[in-house]
Nucleic acid binder design. Structure first.
Lengths: 153, 153
DNA sequence: TCCCATCATGGGTGCGCACCCATCATTTGT
DNA sequence: ACAAATGATGGGTGCGCACCCATGATGGGA
């Protein structure tokens, strides 16, 4: 009797925005679940990645780079400093600024998080073969670039 | 001086999950903004679409089809019934069930929402040409299918 | 030197979303 | 006929995220 099944309405699946939103949420959720094991959230990983890729930042720089509210940066950095993943130090040149730097332990943690993320990616993208995953990544990169550009004019 | 710019850390952009999560959130946000103009949220559109595509549902059916908590279905339907987009009626065969049906006004509203969604899609996917948008859609469809399947065993 | 801009910090708000539980009406199975 | 299962409803919770404002410390320009 459940002939109409559990199928998602075609009106929705026909919308690329809908698919993006859904798959994105799934990806986000899976990733967040992995991070939660270590008591971290997505922003924590983003901050660690920024520090690893670009070296130490003042908190304000983290804010503009990642698009987080400066006020929230404080809290995220707090939570990263507690387990010793990052270190705060005052910038001697400009003593208002707090320089945030990655510790070795933070770098190691990031590596693990990255592995976890790769795993999650593998699971989510399982229906696609390697070639297709690559094209998906390429297309998404361009869409992402477009978004970044339009949000930071 | 801001030589390191506002670039997103490559460690993140290298992760397809991250790109999915971000672009998905952007898509979701843009869509939600459009719906908000009419005082609706994403679930409202999903329910309207389900009714349009598959005809009237009992609320429980909406719950299982869309993966919303039964308790939340009640509230969403409440909000759709207020402007007269849907109508509730007791199923005469099983008087526990409440049959939810789309009204003409609801169908019209859905059409408008659908147009809005297409617009949003066009904006988000602007960096891609038509052919690329099509392949992106196809790839995402398969990923989405994989997700649905693994979440409903 | 003084005023204003900048930065970090802490505290608080509101929204959306996912969940859970208790209750009541009704149907189904025994 | 009665107990158990099902469906709808209302009320409440917690989390993540995005914001906003006030305060105190510091730096830089008039």
């Amino acid at each position: 009797m459940d002939a109409m099944g559990r199928t998602t309405p075609p009106t929705l699946t026909g919308l690329t925005t809908y698919l993006l939103s859904r798959t994105g949420k799934a990806a986000r959720g899976a990733l967040a679940a992995r991070l939660a094991r270590r008591g971290l959230r997505l922003w924590h990983m983003a901050v660690l990645a920024a520090l690893a890729d670009f070296g130490p930042h003042a908190q304000r720089e983290l804010s503009t780079r990642l698009g987080i509210d400066p006020s929230d940066v404080v809290k995220v950095v707090d939570e990263l400093a507690a387990p010793g993943y990052v270190e705060r130090s005052r910038d001697p040149a400009d003593r208002r600024r707090v320089r945030v730097a990655l510790t070795p332990s933070g770098r190691a943690a990031l590596a693990e998080l990255n592995d976890a993320a790769q795993e999650v990616g593998g699971a989510v993208l399982a229906p696609l073969d390697a070639r297709e995953q690559a094209t998906l990544h390429a297309l998404l990169s361009r869409v992402y670039a477009g978004i970044e550009e339009s949000s930071t004019p």
